[in-house]
Design a protein around this nucleic acid. Structure first.
Lengths: 226, 226
DNA sequence: TCAAAAGTGTTGTGTGTACACCCATGT
DNA sequence: ACATGGGTGTACACACAACACTTTTGA
């Protein structure tokens, strides 16, 4: 572009924000941090931060994820880029939003140095958020609800071993409706992507459930899935 | 984030690049421009440019689209944000890619002031592209091929009146396979989203085809579509 | 009258959905 | 023995896929 028009351009700051989804107490939750500094000091917000020099955007997202949860190597996908001129009162800030899917028991939540607190909120009743983070969160929710229908990425919310009832619950929680147990199992097992372990879930006063695990960690596009 | 570490951050430039899809001669094509200035002077590239001050990203994409094709108000969707540190030899440039779906006859192609030429290339045999634009184009192609399966957005490639054979060709071109005429028509019409016009396509030495048009310009999520 | 594409139905197969009872365990 | 969730099969409806011939026009 023409060098003599540089006044018309600007150098925005670029941030990365992350929606960290997990399942706890049969609810879909996301990690929020309480902001230590202005703007929106004391308000809850999505974890995130500025892109560093020579840092790839995806790596920045991984870094932020790790700073808040101590996790590496989970499912992390670019969601959308938000760049309305007024979305940050400090000036022009373009943010690239990512979302992560994390098994609850892998998370070690800690407030990073830009936050005074960090905790999981149920999507249904989370507080008022800083910036346009509510919009971003809603879009992430929309995306994951679509994605559940044609990929198996949401299996990333489960731990290595799980029962069929557990995986069904994940679908019910995200999909937001009850599923018939027999039909669910029939279809799920027919994909041929699970193998049953020898262990069972004992200690409950009921018939023990078989554990299953994934044959592969690859993500698969499914024709349609519920 | 900490103010005393500003050296570690940087202010990237932010650009918008657009993949403008259209159909011409029974082929899926995209608009490329020949770069007037370094880097990659003389090379073909996706149309795009820097984000202006106080300009929303989506508006920037619309502006770029309009500068190259004279079009407004067509389907335009954010694709992905590419931000590898070395993707632009001039320095750190993060680009937000959009794709547009445009009926061929609405386009008035003109080289904007950053280009010496602009023309449509068939996706199948397009030239070597500047920057990481080949990767971006490939991703756009992937996206549109998926999208065809569960939305009707690709109807945006058609003009207001069209025959059923024309819309079927769009599907065949993007989907990359032949479709049975009877099954296609049955399913398409069963959606209830088309109305038949009174006019027919005459002047060819064959039976005249009925024209159809869309009942609505809204985009619809379909369960699955071929 | 001929070439070229438009238009039109039926049948078999597979997939989704609805639905109810017995089983294994811990207390 | 009983409460609790685990585990299993069948029947119907619907959607998809395969398939060929007649019609209308312009030259």
């Amino acid at each position: 572009m023409a060098k003599n028009k540089t006044l018309k351009f600007e150098n925005p700051k670029v941030t990365v924000d992350i929606i960290i989804f997990t399942i706890e107490d049969n609810k879909l939750k996301t990690l929020l941090i309480k902001r230590k500094s202005p703007p929106f000091k004391g308000k809850w917000a999505l974890p995130g931060g500025f892109l560093k020099k020579d840092e790839d955007i995806y790596n920045a997202a991984q870094r932020e994820l790790n700073e808040e949860t101590g996790i590496k190597g989970v499912y992390l996908e670019q969601l959308y880029t938000f760049g309305e001129p007024k979305r940050d009162p400090r000036g022009r800030v373009v943010t690239v939003a990512y979302f992560a899917l994390v098994p609850r028991e892998l998370m070690k939540i800690k407030a990073a140095d830009d936050a005074t607190d960090a905790k999981l909120f149920s999507i249904a009743d989370s507080p008022v958020l800083a910036f346009d983070h509510r919009k971003i969160l809603n879009y992430a929710l929309y995306r994951i609800r679509n994605k559940i229908q044609y990929t198996n990425v949401i299996w990333s919310l489960l731990s290595k071993k799980f029962t069929l009832t557990e995986i069904q619950k994940v679908y019910e929680i995200i999909w937001g409706r009850r599923i018939d147990k027999r039909n669910f199992r029939k279809k799920l097992l027919s994909l041929g992507l699970l193998k049953s372990a020898k262990e069972t879930l004992t200690g409950l006063r009921q018939r023990p459930a078989k554990f299953y695990s994934f044959k592969t960690t690859k993500y698969v596009e499914l024709k349609r899935f519920f």
